[in-house]
Design a protein around this nucleic acid. Structure first.
Lengths: 265, 265
DNA sequence: TCTGTTGTTCCATTACTTGGAACTTAATTT
DNA sequence: AAATTAAGTTCCAAGTAATGGAACAACAGA
């Protein structure tokens, strides 16, 4: 299987686990708790099989079954995630630099990492209001219309990049969203040259950002950091200016990673 | 080794999934990323078997394998958890009331739910500083030394309570921590009578709280909310006073649950 | 280079998952 | 209230995937 394809309904070679994960995906991605029959239709499996699988997931706390026979994501997932997040090395290293960048600009700062075709946000430092956790952290966003995403894509070797772009299906979130691999590829090459990326209201109308890529030497980690804010406050001119501190912060984080994780990587 | 519940090597009736979850638990509960051999020793399984299991978990993104052959929790867990949290019905219903309570007291407010022998924190509303997400949310804490935990235990029918207490292993976090089922049981009966619970620096020195239980009519959900703060600011007298607003907020949340989830439950 | 350690692959045996069908329970209609 | 349909659960023979011992490969230290 290819390195970071991770394409959609692709049957993975993970046996029983893979089938169960598909179910977890179904339930967690649904907009509302699903009944047994709903899942039956979506999963397309025999009733007996599905019933046993769901029972196992519930027994393990990965799903929860309420009194009305509806399945919802289980709380055990929270516990796993809390540990996963609290000890994430990249996040721990990046955190102080994110804070500095937030202080310097007054705007919201994100740390994200490329996983397959998505950016998963690892951290977020806001200014005034208390963070609504999970509001962004942990969420998976498309790579082709976010600053961090495009910055991360600029790190891929040409071949992997073309493969990944070929597998994308573009959703037009705003009028500015890239809708073809062609224009996206052109921009990513430009980003690779200049070392930073913009999001020109491509994911959400009225929201702009400037982002810089971050990577570990062994390319295990490919992601980025960004400064995000409302378009009325963040002119493109200002964003161009901020491309400098973003890149400096990214460099500091990478230096921290090199020191902490050993020079080899 | 094991944190608080989840007693050792308990074989669940969940077939292949159960075995994989044991591995996930091992890795996520460890203090640092584990090498293959570390897991081999902890899991006590044949090398070949373990290797394939870990490979499957990595392929599914539940674990991550870094360049040095160390296994860490995977980022996919974050994505699952983000969805799980964002749509949790109890949290959504409780949130505005938690905010009100925070405003009224100025101290930190928690929402927690009993899962097995642990309290899992579903939400947290702080005053001044931005919330460090996951710092508390999602974390599992012992039920016998937290305000929310003892409040939740007071909801259990006598028999279940005795069973649960019998299975506890007490860790003495501070000088005030309950260390026997006997004294704990006595306090829980008192809590059941009066309708609110205190944490008198039992989990963390210098931290007190007052908590009130919350339950759904079908007892699917048993948990509570609490006001927490430093002992120097929260005298026991003040906590006694605050037992009233905490109980009122709890009542409001339960009313909300009744309306939203239907009268049956 | 040798040697012990760590990590990976292979394959016959075993055990679990599979899925059809029968069954029970709940909801809807007459 | 009885009949009818839908929804959810249990059962078991057959097939498939997991198991685990052993052999193999990669690596580190002496």
């Amino acid at each position: 299987m290819n390195s970071n394809g991770e394409s959609t309904a692709q049957t993975r070679e993970t046996g029983t686990l893979g089938k169960l994960m598909v179910l977890l995906d179904l339930v967690t991605h649904a907009d509302a708790p699903l009944r047994f029959t709903d899942i039956l239709a979506l999963a397309g499996q025999p009733r007996g099989t599905l019933h046993r699988q769901l029972t196992h997931l519930v027994e393990e706390g990965l799903l929860e079954l309420d009194g009305d026979g509806r399945y919802a994501p289980g709380l055990r997932l929270l516990d796993f995630a809390a540990r996963s997040w609290a000890r994430n090395e990249f996040r721990l290293i990046a955190e102080p630099h994110l804070r500095d960048l937030q202080q310097a600009t007054g705007e919201t700062v994100h740390l994200g990492v490329l996983r397959g075709q998505s950016i998963i946000y690892l951290d977020k430092v806001e200014g005034r209001q208390p963070v609504r956790m999970y509001s962004q952290i942990g969420n998976a966003s498309p790579c082709y219309c976010t600053g961090v995403g495009k910055a991360a894509l600029s790190l891929l070797p040409a071949e992997s990049l073309v493969d990944l772009l070929a597998g994308l299906s573009f959703t037009s979130f705003t009028a500015s969203t890239h809708v073809s691999a062609k224009t996206l590829l052109a921009e990513i090459r430009e980003i690779a040259d200049q070392g930073y990326a913009f999001d020109r209201e491509e994911h959400e109308a009225g929201i702009r950002c400037v982002a810089a890529p971050i990577w570990s030497e062994d390319r295990t980690f490919m992601g980025g950091i960004s400064i995000t804010g409302p378009a009325y406050r963040l002119s493109m001119e200002l964003l161009h200016q901020w491309s400098v501190p973003v890149q400096l912060a990214a460099a500091s984080i990478m230096e921290g990673m090199r020191v902490r994780l050993g020079p080899r990587r």
